[in-house]
Amino acid sequence: MTTLTIAHPDTTIHEATAAAIIRVLEANDVEPEITIGPKGALRDMLSAGEVDLYVSAWLPEDAAFLTPGVTSLGVLFNPSVSCCLSQEHNATLTSLSNLAQAGSELSRDVIVPETLLHHAEAMFSAYALQEAGFTLRALPDEEALATFSASLAKEQLVLTVLAQPCYLFHQGGFRILQDPKETLGLEMTAHILLRPGLADEMDRDLYDELDELMLSTKVISAMDYAMRAEGLSADDAAESWQRGKLLPR
């Protein structure tokens, strides 16, 4: 087997994850071919055997990918969803449970990426935030990230809902609020998925290496930051990771 097709959604997070996996494939003399598209289309292609690997399924959220015959490999990293406050050292706002008592300095307009809206709605319901005067402002994902980043630069006190990994977590400057009711969900697990039949066809050493590959949300966040803020390609960011240059040792 000299060629494998890798499919991933069109986001820098998934591109970074795929780039790290491609480094492993190339080290094993496997030439990667890349397919990018919407999740639903890629799910169907994986199930039909039209692509070889999908990177990466965040389980249990992406459980629909686990159609008969699809193989899930070991955990790459642990994604999570958090409500974040654009002030790292605020002494009073530490938990979602005390937001209702926050002063007027905190904007009641909560930014949320559209793909995380269902998480935010569960949070709003559990903590009665709408009754406390908060409203959800759902934006396209990239616009939501840019809006929160601008708020950090202006030192405005706002809330947003973020999925980790993400370049903003590498950039820092904000606080993750405690979620005692676990409304935003527990940590997920990110996996490489193999099309039906590929597990039996793949070289066993390569299979084991992919199954044992561990990245981390810090690694992917750092790669995402390098791609967005420093202009590195996904391949260059993956090489920097391999050489130990992305994160302090």
Rank of each mutant, 00 (worst) to 15 (best):
A126G: 12
L129S: 12
L129K: 13
Q130V: 09
E131D: 11
E131P: 03
A132R: 11
A132M: 05
A132P: 10
A132N: 09
G133C: 09
G133P: 12
F134N: 08
T135S: 15
T135C: 04
R137E: 15
A138Q: 08
L139T: 12
D141A: 09
E142N: 11
E143L: 10
E143H: 07
L145N: 08
T147Q: 07
T147E: 13
S149E: 15
S149H: 09
S149P: 01
S149V: 01
A150L: 07
A150Y: 07
A150K: 06
A150C: 01
S151A: 13
S151Q: 06
L152N: 01
A153S: 07
E155T: 06
Q156H: 05
L157M: 06
L157H: 04
L157R: 01
L157P: 01
V158A: 01
L159Q: 03
L159A: 02
T160M: 02
V161H: 03
V161S: 03
V161N: 02
V161C: 02
L162T: 13
L162P: 08
L162Y: 11
Q164A: 05
Q164S: 08
P165R: 10
C166E: 15
Y167N: 10
Y167M: 07
Y167E: 12
L168H: 09
L168I: 14
H170P: 04
H170S: 13
H170I: 05
Q171L: 06
Q171H: 12
G172F: 12
G172H: 15
G172L: 06
G173S: 10
F174N: 08
R175Y: 10
R175S: 14
I176E: 01
L177I: 15
L177Y: 10
L177D: 10
L177F: 09
Q178T: 15
D179G: 04
K181E: 15
T183M: 03
T183H: 05
T183F: 01
T183N: 04
L184H: 11
G185L: 11
L186T: 14
T189F: 03
I192C: 04
L193A: 08
L193K: 07
L194Y: 11
R195W: 12
G197S: 08
G197K: 06
G197P: 12
A199N: 06
A199T: 13
D200A: 10
D200S: 11
E201D: 13
E201Q: 14
D203F: 09
R204H: 03
L206E: 10
L206N: 08
Y207Q: 01
D211M: 08
D211N: 15
D211V: 09
D211S: 09
E212L: 07
E212F: 05
E212N: 07
L213S: 00
M214P: 01
M214G: 00
L215S: 02
K218E: 13
K218F: 02
K218C: 00
V219F: 00
I220Q: 00
I220D: 00
S221G: 04
M223G: 00
M223P: 06
M223Q: 08
M223V: 10
Y225M: 02
Y225F: 08
Y225Q: 03
Y225A: 05
A226S: 05
A226T: 04
A226Y: 04
A226D: 01
M227R: 00
G231E: 11
L232C: 03
S233Y: 07
S233W: 11
